[in-house]
């Protein structure tokens, strides 16, 4: 059996209450609303704290209405947040200004701390917005929304195929790893990592061959370069209201 188990790509799946008023909104309204919140947060001056508070309040409201728990948000956000915050953590040391303390030989400035706090707030708001889109909207719905919002169709097609075949490729990786372990492969140092490289190239070749077969299967059913649209979306009054309610307050 190829493909991933139910837990492996849980980060991309819908969470919370699938019947909530947020989950039921047209994916376009959610995408636009949460992108708007992110844009407001990133384009605001670094120390405009009331704006950050407004954004956070909207996100908290959405999370509560959708019954997405703080644990779920943290579980998903921690994939991105620490990386960005790690990069931002150098700001208090490199920004020049009024020195308020020091860590070892490095001085910390008040301006640097302020900028760091602003960057951290922007990052957190952007990440949580993305997490909430993912938790309240299935990936196919996000793609449909992008397509209707006139995102480049090639981009949407690539994202769609990547999502679909991530499961298949991950299944192949898992089977390859099992096959290597079954023949007692247990690398102890870097010099024994060669087989991993061979496995990676085999995986690449398999993925390439699969790409060709998928194209044949698409062409066999009349594909000529444009993806047809099957599932209609409906933007109702409630969706517009949600968009306004989420995007205006910040």
């Amino acid at each position: 059996m190829s493909g991933l188990g139910p837990h492996d790509l849980a980060l991309a799946s819908v969470a919370g209450d699938p019947g909530s008023p947020i989950h039921r909104r047209d994916p376009r309204s959610k995408l636009l609303a949460l992108v708007a919140v992110t844009l407001v947060a990133v384009s605001t001056p670094a120390t405009a704290w009331p704006v950050y508070a407004g954004c956070a309040a909207v996100l908290a409201g959405v999370a509560v209405a959708a019954r997405v728990t703080p644990a779920t948000i943290w579980h998903r956000a921690r994939v991105v947040l620490p990386l960005v915050l790690f990069a931002a953590a150098f700001i208090p040391f490199v920004r020049e200004g009024h020195v308020v303390g020091s860590v070892g030989p490095f001085d910390v400035t008040a301006e640097g701390l302020e900028t760091f706090a602003g960057v951290a707030a922007k990052t957190a708001i952007g990440t949580v917005s993305a997490v909430l889109i993912g938790a309240t909207t299935s990936f196919p719905d996000v793609l449909r929304a992008l397509e209707r919002l006139r995102a480049p169709r090639l981009f949407v097609l690539i994202a769609m195929l990547t999502y679909r075949y991530a499961f298949v490729v991950a299944g192949e990786v898992r089977r390859m790893r099992t096959a290597m372990r079954a023949r007692a492969y247990r690398p102890r140092h870097a010099l024994q990592a060669g087989p991993v490289g061979h496995a990676a190239s085999a995986l690449f070749l398999r993925a390439h061959a699969r790409g060709e077969r998928i194209y044949l299967a698409m062409a066999a059913r009349g594909f000529t370069g444009t993806m047809p649209q099957a599932v209609p979306l409906r933007l109702g009054a409630a969706d517009v209201l949600f968009l306004a309610a989420a995007a205006v307050p910040p």
């Binding site: 793609l143 769609m160 999502y163 298949v168 699969r210 077969r213 299967a217």
Partner: peptide, 8 residues
């Protein structure tokens, strides 16, 4: 898996 390439 070659034939079923759409999300649903």
């Amino acid at each position: 898996d070659d034939q079923l390439f759409m999300p649903t």
